[in-house]
Nucleic acid binder design. Structure first.
Lengths: 343, 343
DNA sequence: CGCTATCTTGTAAACGTTTTCAATACAAGA
DNA sequence: TCTTGTATTGAAAACGTTTACAAGATAGCG
């Protein structure tokens, strides 16, 4: 393996000069620079990143810890973060833990080991473990940012969507369409009672909208599910529809949930959207391909990832940057699954 | 930051001994070992991974280069690779390039810089660039494995599905159901004429099955699309259905394509699956949530990722391992979208 | 021409670890 | 007791870079 020394020898300069050329520093005579570059080309020299990372104690790597289950949302978010980081010269160590404590532990060690410059965490609902992890990271001077969940410790930057407002908007949409008897299949709700999780927030928004906007609205809630999968949606949807035949709309607090409900409705022979309006939440790819296409409260997933990445980078580059809490708005995408109530 | 020296001083041993303890080598007296461990705990010492990676020139990181567009398939594959690698003690540098040459270049440099131990590549159809990249990697002694595409260079291990057989199976399924006039919306076909790409293979299988299994089958092919998205499927599906009203089945060579076709059919007022059977290919999550649920030729995505990872690890640990070409079978998942032809 | 400021370059010292080599201690066998 | 082999340990040399410091060269200025 050809090292800086070989280049120095061939170009007849010192290794310091080669290093300066490689790193693009000023104060190198053009002839010398050219000679060095020629030597580099001749030998096919390539800086040993392990050595330079070691020397500078900078890895240019950031960890992305995705605790929640692998979902379309997660992967879209990861992708947004990765590309943004890439453009800023950072590389991403992706850590999908599925909430497995052991795996988290190991990943955290890797990150510490690699001296990652920063970490973006999408925490799951339960945060006791998270807090400990975050403290460990910050003790070592590693910047941390949260995405999709507000931290309990306010000293940490975060980027979240306003799930309360999103729930509110969704409910308003349904009410404005004339629906008065509305089912809500709620998922993504932390079981430990932490009320900051996205699911609970959405439900809060839904409640508030019902209270604000119409006196005659009746909401039927499913039990609050922790997981928000297609299967959960299908089962809860089936139960809800058969148990409450007079429902005219169902709001799933997740697209996958809503899609599950849609299937249940189909299976029960309902004609969608005529017999039942269905509204989702997330705006993931899948919501665009259902039949009928799913109206949904869309999250700006890409923007979330982007802003989270840029925020973290801000902290990494300037440790004194004060933390900031970014809240993004969700927006209703009206597609075919929600229609006005026929009287 | 506390280093091995601090530990050595506190435990009153040499740094060599500390290193031995940290790395779990034999030949350390139990008392000494305990003393060192105590010192480590007291000081909160943690090995500097950058330093040890540098010293050993081993990063324990593998690159995963996903060239093709971000799709459910891609992310499922990435996840499978990541978890397998994790279990084997490796970490993954995820490189989504979307086929952007500049991005690929930069990622490749990062990988070389970081001295990744190996790289898994899912190449896109066009392989001229790939070949150059692979050579560059191998020159530096970095193991390479392909996933989802056979390499032109046979010296490289690969894991692929038998797309020919998959196409064949799909066609057989439709023929056995009695369909004789079948549309094929073909995507994922490399434009450069390389016939080894998955799309072309599937089409070959389809052709062969038609030839083998029935004399009276008529196939209407769409143009071969490079992308295999929902939108492409919808448009091609609409054109195909309106242009050939007597079709009784359509085979999309990708789930997203088939889902697009399904939408087109819905939009044209067809009653699915009665009026038209639709078959997909991939077995991604989305195929299970359509209405009607999509019959599909499922790829063992997780297994592919897993085997690719293990194969690469094999090469990394034992450079003399001879390359192997693994071919996995696709299997038909019959759901609701394909039904026997009513006479 | 001499002085000073600025450019350019090289020397050498880190960075924190792993690992080779040699030295010591100790136990077992003769 | 002497020898020999083995277990345990430490000293010191890497690994390839970056960078502080110093020194020499050059240019600008009076």
């Amino acid at each position: 393996m050809v090292t800086i020394k070989d280049v120095a020898k061939l170009a007849d300069v010192s290794i310091a000069t080669v290093s300066r050329v490689v790193n693009g520093y000023a104060h190198v005579r053009p002839e010398v620079r050219d000679a060095v570059n020629k030597a580099i080309d001749t030998l096919g020299y390539r800086r040993n990143g392990l050595a330079s990372s070691f020397r500078t104690q900078q890895s240019n790597i950031v960890g992305v810890l995705l605790r929640q289950q692998r979902t379309p949302f997660s992967s879209a978010l990861a992708y947004a973060i990765e590309t943004t980081m890439f453009d800023q010269g950072y590389r991403v160590l992706l850590c999908s833990t599925n909430g497995d404590a052991e795996r988290e532990e190991a990943y955290l060690e890797t990150m510490l080991d690699m001296r990652v410059q920063g970490v973006i965490i999408r925490p799951s609902g339960t945060t006791s473990r998270t807090t400990k992890q975050v403290n460990l990271l910050r003790e070592r001077g590693i910047s941390v940012a949260f995405v999709d969940m507000k931290p309990k410790i306010p000293a940490i930057s975060s980027v979240v969507c306003d799930n309360f407002s999103g729930g509110y908007q969704g409910m308003r949409h349904l009410i404005e369409l004339g629906h008065r008897k509305i089912g809500v299949v709620a998922g993504g709700v932390a079981q430990k009672g932490g009320s900051q999780d996205v699911g609970s927030e959405r439900v809060r928004g839904i409640r508030q909208a019902a209270q604000d906007l119409a006196t005659d609205v009746e909401i039927i809630f499913s039990q609050p599910f922790e997981t928000a999968s297609f299967d959960v949606g299908r089962e809860a949807g089936a139960a809800m529809i058969t148990g409450n035949p007079s429902l005219t709309a169902i709001f799933g607090t997740t697209d996958m949930l809503a899609i599950g409900v849609m299937h249940a409705a189909h299976a029960l022979g309902l004609d969608l959207p005529r017999d039942l309006s269905i509204l989702g939440y997330d705006g993931v790819l899948e919501s665009a391909v259902t039949f009928p296409t799913l109206s949904t409260i869309a999250q700006p997933i890409h923007e979330m990832g982007q802003i989270a990445a840029m925020t973290l980078i801000g902290h990494m580059r300037e440790a004194s940057n004060s933390p900031r809490q970014v809240v993004l708005e969700n927006t209703l995408i009206q597609r075919a699954s929600t229609i006005p109530l026929e009287n």
